[in-house]
Amino acid sequence: MNQPDLPPLRDVINRHGLFATKALGQNFLFDEQLLDRIAAIPGKLKGQDVLEVGPGPGGLTRALLRAGANVTAIEMDKRCLPALAELSEAFPGQLTVIEGDATKIDPATLFAGAYHIVANLPYNVGTALFTGWLSGENWPPQWASLTLMFQLEVAQRIIATPADPSAFGRLAVLAQWRSAAKLAMKVHRSAFTPPPKVMSAIVHVTPADMPQGVSARMLERVTEAAFGQRRKMLRQSLKGLPGALAALERLGIDPQRRAETLNVEEFVAIARELTA
């Protein structure tokens, strides 16, 4: 299939008078080769449905469309809509743009079947969106994979293990207890306009089997309590969660340990003990 001849992204941004705004957590990527590499991380996307959050002027959107994906993009910055409309015309039938706040839109209402989420997430809402996509009792989820740009520090927290206690926390447990999460690519700050103060990284997540007999909400409650007071021993941080200390005793988990010393399986075991 012949690809449309698109103007350089910098030209599009200049023509539409666009600039990244700190209030929306925006940082634009212009390197087309880098964007194509990001779009390739989920695998072959030809004919696949993809959700993109915060496309901005459409850099990553271009790469996804070139890969043959059917893209639904949610953008709340009205300034970017004309540039995205030009992409819709260049790739007829492949791009649907929704003006709105992604934190208030349920992706399941946008697709009839499975879909991938690929996004350079706005820094100010990225973690909230990610934990939302990981939550819920229904599993496997409707999304087939998540390919998401985060600040490198956040990405490292997602893939962390107890071997790195400073990074291991609630985010790692939620990402790993029924999913496989890996750091797919680091992205230098110089690749962005304007350059952020920190490095970034792409995290790729795919659903795995959900452990039996445990409620997702109960696991969230356990991790919220344990890591909400992570410097304290479990006997202190979990005492406000009914039945938690007795569960530790039944499981043979020393209540003098701190949350970051437990592995994912131990958190799942505690939540299973507390799941009615």
Rank of each mutant, 00 (worst) to 15 (best):
M1N: 05
N2Y: 00
N2I: 13
P4I: 09
D5T: 07
D11A: 15
H16A: 06
T21I: 06
L24F: 14
L24V: 02
E32D: 15
L35Q: 08
K44P: 14
K44H: 13
K44C: 13
L45C: 10
L45G: 04
K46T: 15
G47R: 08
V50P: 04
V50A: 03
P55Y: 01
G58H: 01
G58K: 03
R66N: 02
A69L: 12
E75H: 13
M76T: 09
M76K: 15
R79S: 11
C80R: 00
L81R: 08
P82K: 09
A83L: 06
L84E: 00
L87T: 07
S88Q: 15
I98P: 09
D101Q: 14
D101H: 13
A102D: 06
P107A: 02
P107M: 06
L110A: 13
F111L: 06
Y115E: 09
I117Y: 10
V118N: 11
V118E: 14
N120Q: 08
V125L: 14
V125W: 06
A128M: 10
T131I: 05
W133C: 12
W133V: 11
S135V: 02
E137R: 08
P140L: 06
P141G: 05
A144L: 12
L146T: 07
T147M: 04
F150G: 06
F150A: 05
F150C: 04
V154F: 03
P162L: 07
S166V: 09
L171Q: 10
A175I: 13
Q176C: 07
A181F: 07
K186P: 10
K186T: 15
V187N: 12
S190N: 14
T193Y: 07
A201P: 09
I202L: 13
V205F: 01
R217C: 02
L219F: 08
R221I: 13
R221L: 15
V222A: 01
V222S: 04
V222K: 05
T223V: 15
R231E: 00
M233F: 00
K239L: 03
G243W: 08
A247K: 03
E249C: 01
L251C: 08
I253N: 08
P255S: 07
R257L: 14
A259V: 09
E260F: 06
T261R: 07
L262C: 08
V264S: 00
V268C: 04
L274C: 02
